[in-house]
Amino acid sequence: MEAQKVDMKSELRSRYGTVRRAYEYHLYTAKGVRLLDMCQEGGAAILGWRSGRSKLALKNTLDRGITGSFPTETEDELSRAVQEVLPQYSTVRVYQTKDRARLACADYLGLWSEIPLIESPLLHPEASIDIGPGGDSPLSASRKVHGIPLWRPWLDEAFYAMSDRVDSAFLNNVNDTLETMVLSSPYPFAGGCSVVVFSSPEKDGRAPWPSDSIAPALLAAYARAWADLASALFERTEADWAKFDRYAEPYWDRRGPYLVPKMRPSRYADFFRSCLDKGILVSPDYDTPSIIPWSADPSELKVLSASGSK
């Protein structure tokens, strides 16, 4: 059975009211409850909700009145910051939505417009030989992971750390179509924009679509967030994620900082609600990984095993 859709806003509001404050990896609600955030806006808050200087960059640009659709230096700043993390890509574009980003990638590659945006094969529930819901073999499942790839930080390290426990069919697909990627950007701003990289200015006579018009202040904030990510990539290691294994292992398979559920898709909605009842917000989507809250205390996950949430 497929995973039941979860309305995260409704589930949060019905238990705890609205969220009034977000700091690092915790959300503070109207009912005075502090929630551990393992959803992290799908990865946008992987550096924390108020870490770095991205919001200062946003404010400074707004204060200068740079809010129009004219060209500004923020476009180049964002390109340089992204290329500091991914120097092998010569061209950076920004689009208003992930769907626009996906279509731009498909056009660049000369693929059909309905090709999906997909997570890395390393984050597929059946990539690991010894876990995952029953059904397809790893080989047949790996054939379903073709699409426009979504890049996430720290997965390169996970690739090497997992090489002895991931089926080779998935490993062979990891670097299959990387001439262009949609990036999971480390700036927690609902609605933001989608960043795309291209390996060259042209492929088979097709140039990447021009960037969409995005508010300069938002581009400045994204640029600062990418600069912060460039520093964080060297500061956070496999040992930082592994501290959580003791409590996370019964429920997820960890791949770098990302947590892939072990239960069947049909059970995931109940698992999400059970975690939320215990003060932990995990990803509401079975196919989107939950994420280790880097600076949180691993013992905050104790409540899962204490009451048998599996």
Score class of each variant (00 low, 15 high):
residue 286 Y to W: 11
residue 28 Y to I: 09
residue 95 Y to C: 08
residue 3 A to Y: 06
residue 135 G to Q: 12
residue 36 L to N: 02
residue 44 A to H: 11
residue 255 R to I: 10
residue 84 E to R: 14
residue 266 S to R: 15
residue 177 T to A: 10
residue 47 L to A: 05
residue 125 P to E: 05
residue 308 G to T: 07
residue 171 L to W: 07
residue 119 E to V: 09
residue 180 T to I: 09
residue 15 R to P: 03
residue 64 R to K: 15
residue 24 E to V: 11
residue 310 K to T: 09
residue 75 E to W: 06
residue 56 L to Y: 13
residue 138 P to T: 11
residue 71 P to N: 11
residue 34 R to I: 05
residue 164 D to S: 15
residue 249 E to H: 08
residue 171 L to M: 14
residue 166 V to L: 07
residue 155 L to W: 00
residue 115 I to H: 06
residue 178 L to P: 12
residue 194 S to G: 05
residue 268 Y to F: 15
residue 289 P to L: 04
residue 201 P to G: 10
residue 204 D to G: 09
residue 154 W to N: 06
residue 264 R to Q: 12
residue 109 L to S: 06
residue 19 V to W: 02
residue 64 R to N: 11
residue 251 Y to A: 04
residue 42 G to R: 05
residue 129 I to S: 10
residue 205 G to E: 05
residue 14 S to P: 08
residue 27 L to S: 06
residue 198 F to P: 02
residue 56 L to E: 14
residue 137 S to F: 10
residue 265 P to R: 13
residue 25 Y to D: 08
residue 41 E to P: 00
residue 130 D to T: 13
residue 174 V to W: 02
residue 158 A to I: 04
residue 106 A to G: 08
residue 207 A to M: 11
residue 58 L to D: 02
residue 104 A to D: 02
residue 84 E to P: 06
residue 69 S to T: 08
residue 119 E to C: 01
residue 254 R to M: 03
residue 83 Q to K: 15
residue 17 G to M: 06
residue 120 S to Q: 07
residue 38 M to C: 13
residue 247 Y to K: 08
residue 122 L to Q: 03
residue 166 V to F: 00
residue 157 E to C: 08
residue 279 G to V: 03
residue 209 W to T: 09
residue 248 A to D: 01
residue 275 C to K: 00
residue 304 L to I: 06
residue 288 T to D: 11
residue 281 L to K: 08
residue 276 L to N: 01
residue 194 S to K: 01
residue 64 R to E: 15
residue 227 A to H: 10
residue 158 A to V: 05
residue 151 W to F: 10
residue 199 S to W: 01
residue 82 V to Y: 00
residue 128 S to G: 09
residue 202 E to T: 13
residue 164 D to P: 03
residue 86 L to G: 04
residue 27 L to Y: 03
residue 266 S to Y: 14
